[in-house]
C-alpha cells in the first residue's frame, strides 16, 4: 500500500490503530470501550473516561488521542504532555475548528509531540495546517500524498505570526 502519512515533510508508514466511538456515545460508552494492545489512537472522551487505567500505557508511549471538532481542547489541557501523539479530526475540510485547536495545543498548552491532521484534508489545506502547528498529515487513500507534500512549499513567505513562524512579517521585513 502507498504511504499516506506525511511526517516532518516525509512519507512514512503509519503504525497506529484507530479506535472509534459512535458519534452519540456517552461517557459510559466511552468507559466501556475495550482498548486493544499496541499503539492506539483513542477518542479524547475515552481518555477522560479511562484515564486512570490508561495512564501507564500512555506513559509508555502507546496512547494517542483524537479530537473531534466539537471537543474543547481545554478539557484535556492538563494531560497533553502524556500523549505520544494527538490527532485532530477534520470530518469535512470546510470545518476549520481544528485549526484553532492546533494553535491552542502548541501555543497555549506547549504541546510538543506529534500533532496529526486526519480526515478530509488534502494538498490544498496542508500549507495552512502546517502553519497552525501540525507536523503530520494523514492523506486520505486515493489521494496522491507525494504531490500533497509539494504543497507545503506553496508560499515563500507569510504575513502573520503563527506556530511555524511566530514572528509576523512586519517584525522580519528588511527595509
Amino acid at each position: 500500500m502507498a504511504k499516506q502519512l506525511i511526517k516532518n515533510d516525509q512519507l512514512i508508514d503509519d503504525n497506529w490503530q484507530v479506535i472509534a466511538l459512535a458519534d452519540e456515545a456517552t461517557l459510559e460508552d466511552a468507559a466501556a470501550l475495550p482498548i486493544p494492545a499496541g499503539p492506539a489512537i483513542i477518542p479524547a472522551l475515552v481518555w477522560l473516561a479511562q484515564r486512570d487505567a490508561l495512564r501507564s500505557r500512555a506513559d509508555a508511549g502507546d496512547i494517542a488521542v483524537s479530537l473531534a471538532p466539537t471537543f474543547r481542547v481545554e478539557d484535556i489541557a492538563q494531560d497533553v504532555q502524556r500523549f505520544a501523539m494527538i490527532a485532530v479530526e477534520f470530518p469535512k475540510f470546510i470545518d476549520g475548528r481544528g485549526y484553532s485547536t492546533a494553535r491552542l495545543l502548541r501555543e497555549r498548552y506547549a504541546y510538543r509531540g506529534e500533532l496529526r491532521a486526519v480526515g478530509n484534508i488534502g494538498r490544498d489545506q496542508l500549507f495552512y495546517l502546517k502553519r497552525v502547528g501540525f507536523d503530520a498529515f494523514l492523506i486520505p487513500p486515493g489521494q496522491d500524498a507525494a504531490a500533497a507534500l509539494q504543497s507545503l512549499n506553496d508560499f515563500p513567505e507569510v504575513y502573520q505570526g503563527a506556530v511555524d513562524q511566530p514572528l509576523p512579517l512586519f517584525r522580519r521585513r528588511t527595509a
Binding site: 475540510f93 470546510i94 470545518d95 476549520g96 485549526y99 484553532s100 494553535r103 500549507f127 495552512y128 495546517l129 502553519r131 497552525v132 508560499f155 507569510v158 504575513y159 502573520q160 503563527a162 509576523p168 512579517l169 512586519f170
Partner: peptide, 11 residues
C-alpha cells in the same frame, strides 16, 4: 496583510 492567508481562519 494580517488577514491574507491567515492560516487559522480560512475555513
Amino acid at each position: 496583510q494580517w488577514s491574507t492567508f491567515h492560516p487559522e481562519f480560512a475555513y
